[in-house]
Design a binder for these strands. Structure first.
Length: 663
DNA sequence: CTAGGGTTAG
């Protein structure tokens, strides 16, 4: 079991997103015809000399050539042996022809042929800017940003390397594959190498920003650059900006850009409206949302399924459930409610606003109507049931989901099921979920760790909880202080002080503000567990957060069994923070030195230091010292120091009131 | 067709 909790694989590869819009935009035969027609029918500059006379002849000599080219292209497209097909085509095809085939290979997803052809083109010096742009674009589509970067790095021709379309396509490749950070870095490099970025460059990078968690600020930086360079704005840029505003809840800015865009003469399309509507949905502003829909209709844009579904979200989030249900009915009539989305929105909001029974009813209705479902509404219901602590029902539904859909392809699904099983204490199913997660190759996120730690802790599997905290920390997830602190305490109680200390350190170095009481808690655990040196380090760094009682308890424990070489250091540090070491503690320390006669220098050092600070030993200790002084071979020295201590002590007596002042 | 964007559910 332990092994399982630790066996998460973190491949770091973002989940695949399907990109299916390529083929529809792409028409091989059109592009083929265009490219082949160009050299044959475009007016040649020297046409006067041969045009009328040779037109018939020209047709007859070129036609076979045109056919030869087409054949050669087809030959490469369909070749099983690409190399020999390319050899046969040599001298017949031009760069543009190779580019056509390159695009064809991509469209038909023949990635190996695609790469092979591109390499061949490089080797035979048959490439232009377009070849590279195409190559990088398709490297983006085939999710191969690393390769793209390698190829880009190896471009020797500066003209190509700094050509905007080449740069843009490389940046686009990175952005598409979730590497916005490196795209931004590369962009800076390109600029300092001499790239003159254009609107497409910025639009590409802005798209990347929309995928970053804190991308809004970066987006604004890029926007400044666009302004500084007077590149102007177009409706694509506005589209991206509105999407960024929507996902960052920037209502005012979204409204501003929307207006600005209209002022500059760009008519907003369905998507621009949709993004703005999203902002209103987040804000639960149904009035503005309704106005926007009306505005949209008045300019002749019919709200589609997505827009109407978003409107339903506005109503539902705003608690307007009657209106929501009316709109749902309308969506049903329009045929826009064939899938579960609208139902899911309504169910979620009903449940979140305390109307679980109504939510259940909509869920049941939906299932009766045989609405197409991928299991999302199950997820929503399971979460809702867990929140309401209807744990048995939640588990039932989780099992139903598993048997009905058996879909585990994202972390939210796995977390939801995991939570349902954890809440029920169904260990077997929990472990099954973890195994699934591993098999599917999904990285646990913050929630996964949190659910598991809570569960292991509840089940008193503190060591597993500890291992999971360790794992969470190493994956750079912010630790939950409250949860980790409780695990830390339990680890202490269960006799695992060093694990507890390790949890403490993870919290301590997690760069955020912590409860002051944390330090005292770990100190108590360390003292009880005999990890006195670690305890010493805690007291040194956080003495202000530690109560006098705990401090004293620590000091006693340390004098009694801590590292004898550190006794004086501990006392000095204690003195620095408190200035009131009790005679009893000194007594324990000195008794300790009696057991270790070879440490007599340390003892003498301590006695002198005590005198200097105005401390004196109590009567018992004093007698003990004098009686045993000969054992240290320093009878006279000890007597002298003790005499000094008394003097010092009587001198300092009057100052004892001011000892609260630290340092 | 040398490069860029967009909306809904957990």
């Amino acid at each position: 079991m332990e092994a399982m909790a630790l066996s998460f694989t973190f491949s770091g590869i973002p989940p695949l997103r399907t990109t299916s819009n390529l083929s529809s935009k792409f028409c091989i035969s059109c592009s083929l015809a265009k490219t082949l027609d160009k050299p044959l029918f475009s007016a040649p500059t020297n046409s006067t000399s041969n045009a009328p006379l040779n037109s018939a002849q020209s047709n007859s000599t070129h036609k076979p050539f045109k056919i030869a080219r087409r054949d050669a292209i087809d030959g490469i497209k369909t070749a099983s042996d690409l190399e020999s097909a390319l050899q046969r085509a040599e001298g017949i095809l031009q760069v543009e022809d190779y580019n056509i085939v390159l695009r064809y290979f991509c469209e038909s997803k023949k990635w190996s042929h695609f790469s092979q052809l591109f390499e061949w083109m490089q080797a035979h010096d048959e490439f232009n800017v377009g070849s590279y742009s195409t190559y990088f674009k398709y490297m983006g589509l085939s999710r191969n940003p690393v390769k793209a970067l390698k190829v880009y790095d190896n471009i020797k021709d500066v003209e190509i390397k700094l050509h905007p379309s080449v740069c843009n396509s490389v940046l686009g490749c990175l952005v598409r594959n979730g590497r916005t950070e490196s795209a931004l870095k590369l962009f800076d490099q390109m600029k300092s190498d001499g790239l003159l970025p254009n609107l497409v460059t910025y639009s590409t990078l802005l798209t990347g920003c929309s995928k970053l968690k804190n991308g809004y600020a970066t987006a604004m930086e890029l926007l400044k650059e666009i302004k500084a360079q007077n590149l102007g704005m177009d409706s694509v840029i506005y589209g991206t900006l509105l999407a960024i505003c929507a996902s960052n809840n920037r209502r005012e800015e979204a409204e501003l850009y929307f207006q600005q865009m209209k002022n500059e003469g760009h008519s907003p399309n369905l998507f621009h409206y949709s993004s703005l509507l999203n902002v209103y949905a987040e804000d639960r502003d149904h009035t503005k949302a309704q106005m926007l829909i009306n505005d949209m209709k008045s300019v002749g844009i019919a709200p589609n399924k997505v827009v109407l579904t978003t409107l339903l979200k506005v109503y539902a989030r705003g608690g307007l459930f009657e209106k929501s249900k009316e709109l749902l009915a309308e969506l049903e009539t329009l045929g826009y409610a064939q899938d579960e989305i609208a139902y899911a929105i309504l169910i979620d909001n009903l449940a979140k606003q305390g109307k679980l029974d109504e939510a259940k009813k909509i869920f049941a209705d939906m299932n009766e109507k045989c609405v197409k479902s991928d299991g999302y509404s199950h997820m929503i219901m399971i979460s809702a049931l867990c929140r309401s602590r209807l744990l048995e029902e939640a588990k039932q539904l989780a099992k139903e989901y598993e048997s009905k859909y058996a879909k585990y392809d994202d972390v939210v699904i796995l977390n939801t099921l995991l939570r349902a099983y954890c809440n029920n204490g169904d260990m077997e199913s929990v472990m099954q979920m973890l195994k699934r997660m591993d098999e599917v190759g999904i990285s646990p996120d913050w929630n996964t760790f949190h659910i598991l730690i809570k569960y292991f802790s509840k089940e008193k599997l503190y060591h597993l909880a500890y291992k999971t905290i360790e794992d969470m920390n190493s994956k750079k997830h912010q630790l939950d202080e409250e949860l980790c602190t409780s695990v830390m305490i339990e680890l202490g109680k269960a006799g695992y002080p060093s694990e507890a200390f390790s949890v403490y350190n993870m919290l301590r170095y997690s760069q955020r503000k912590l409860q002051k009481s944390l330090h005292e808690k770990i100190l108590q655990i360390l003292v009880a567990g005999g990890l006195l040196k670690d305890a010493y380090l805690v007291t040194k760094d956080f003495s202000e957060s530690i109560s006098d009682r705990s401090m004293e308890k620590f000091a006693r424990a340390f004098m009694k069994s801590g590292n004898v070489n550190l006794i004086n250091d501990v006392l000095k540090s204690y003195h620095q923070s408190r200035k009131k070491i009790s005679p009893e503690i000194f007594n324990i320390a000195i008794t300790r030195y009696f057991q270790r006669r070879e440490k007599k220098e340390l003892l003498l050092h301590l006695l002198r230091w005590m005198a200097g600070q105005g401390y004196c030993v109590d009567a018992t200790t004093r007698n003990l010292l004098l009686k045993n002084a000969h054992l240290f071979g320093s009878k006279q020295i000890i007597a002298d120091i003790l005499a000094n201590q008394q003097v010092a002590n009587s001198k300092l007596n009057g100052r004892s009131k001011s000892r609260h002042n630290k340092k």
